[in-house]
Design a protein around this nucleic acid. Sequence first.
DNA 1: TCGCAATACGGCAATATTGCCGTATTAATG
DNA 2: CATTAATACGGCAATATTGCCGTATTGCGA
Lengths: 339, 339
Amino acid sequence: MKLTSEEIQQRILKVLHRLGRPAGSSQIAELLRGWGVDLSERSIRLYLLQLDAAGLTQLESRRAGRSLTAKGLAEVEQGPAIERVGFVAGQIDELNYRMGFRLRAGMGTLVVNTTLLPARDEVAALEVVRPVFAARLGMGSRLLVLRAGAVYDVARAAVVPRGKIALVTVCSVSLNGIFLKEGIPITSRYGGLLEFRNRLPARFTELLAYGGTTQDPLELFIRANMTSVRKCEQTGNGLVGASFREFPSVALPAVLKIRDQLRLLGLDGILAVGVPNQPLYGIPVGEGRTGLVVLAGLNPAAALEEAGIAVENRSLAGLLDYVKFPEFRHLNMWTRRGE
Amino acid sequence: MKLTSEEIQQRILKVLHRLGRPAGSSQIAELLRGWGVDLSERSIRLYLLQLDAAGLTQLESRRAGRSLTAKGLAEVEQGPAIERVGFVAGQIDELNYRMGFRLRAGMGTLVVNTTLLPARDEVAALEVVRPVFAARLGMGSRLLVLRAGAVYDVARAAVVPRGKIALVTVCSVSLNGIFLKEGIPITSRYGGLLEFRNRLPARFTELLAYGGTTQDPLELFIRANMTSVRKCEQTGNGLVGASFREFPSVALPAVLKIRDQLRLLGLDGILAVGVPNQPLYGIPVGEGRTGLVVLAGLNPAAALEEAGIAVENRSLAGLLDYVKFPEFRHLNMWTRRGE
DNA sequence: TCGCAATACGGCAATATTGCCGTATTAATG
DNA sequence: CATTAATACGGCAATATTGCCGTATTGCGA
């Protein structure tokens, strides 16, 4: 795909806007990679000079880099929608932008998936879901159960219908938003099925690029009955949903540190971190990048489907506050309290 | 994705090899687009000069363009596998290369899909499949039924097991191969679900890029029960499998002509041809290219699944000779004759 | 408070890519 | 067989991109 000079400028403005703070050419170049713009930082600086001249950006300080001017802001907001609407990659980006989680404070909103199921199956469902979390096949260890009448999707103002309950899980793309706030741009590449053997991840059996699908990969795999999360949890062999991502290799130490913090918050879905510039589970990464495998937030939902419970999944369903999510271990208590 | 100079040279050699005849920079540039190389023809000529100097290519004649030398041939064959193995786009390319169909003669091999189903369901299956072809929702109008013991996949030497029959359909990627032989490089972009309203195609409801999936899109949609081919055939409203492709706009007249010839051969799966450089059903095409929508060869198989017949699909299953495929209208006759 | 280390910038020169154009060659046509 | 039209090539100059490097600024630690 050939991009015109104007398109590149538009995208530079866009990432500056998304970031919400000044940035240097280097950081901008990294962010642009996730948007199909592959230029050196030097080239970015040349574009920035043009944007400066046009009054759309300005040099904030020699240390901080460029920021948007009021005029630049206007340009972004009126400018053409860059996103190929409909593709999952675009939705991920949009939700990451709207999400706000402060790692330091341990609070804020997260991207969530929802799973609707018959209320009468609640007890059985929890019996299925719990061991999946216990086997560490979920995205972190938090889970929320909502009863009929509760709003389960703020954006769409969707309400849990009578006779149903909603199981809300933390979506693994939340991690991208959390890391981005810490200055680390993670790009989601593929959703896929990861084969476990003897409780150890072995290889991806299927991959589906987020940038090339209008349907969430794991939703699709679940509907197609291609997962075997329960088998994996019970025997140590099976196929579970996982996501392949990458980030700039320079950020590796920071990634490991943040991962530890996430563990304490019950948000650790990171299954493996690769070696810089080396393929991870057979999947090559870009120059100067490191691979990352994250477990899918929908794995518990996949287990429900496998168990024959009629579920209706919606990934990337919306945003929800972290504090509302109990640890799965405390679930009994919470569900008894009701909504 | 940044490509090194060597990688670009490798790919130039590769397309020359695949093409199997001399080509000019312009044609090479077109072909390279399908391989993630986006360069002007002038730039290609600069690379060709380097390759000439290295003795890998030579100027065949001022008119015909470059061809591979023996040394160049060796280089391609030893060279690193460029393909991201596993992704469907790579498989499509591989099969296109091996396929040989001469439009002029109306004979040669085609890429096929196979569908295994219980032999006792044969009569019912034909009742389901026939109207799908009659409604022109298949890829052309040809269909082969194989009985137990017949080889249904030459490459894998797979045999139809006892108690089963195999339904063999022409895969829509065969078109790419046919057109390529006529000098028109068609690139398969997306497999998806196309919504019909009142018997007319309206829009794509789902898309899945061939370059970003390891599983055939339509196989996936069928397994996920997302198709409604029968409903479409019966009521004129529904979701059927279709593929979005594009080709260089200059070839438009030739495409239309070839389409007419294909119709006579019962291989017409082309549902719509776009306007040069204009989006087709909402999907934008590249600069200087024209969109094309082709019906999926597996649509009849989708109808079977919808009808509750236990099917096992394998798309891009292998190659089969055109002459073996009867018209679906003559199917009774053929099936009676047995295998 | 001072100095260091880190970071971002932009000058400069080397490449890489592209557009434009005149020329050579050849298939096809009359 | 002569002529025409089409096609491919490569020269040249204009851009675009990149690597390398010295300088300016500033957060942070001593």
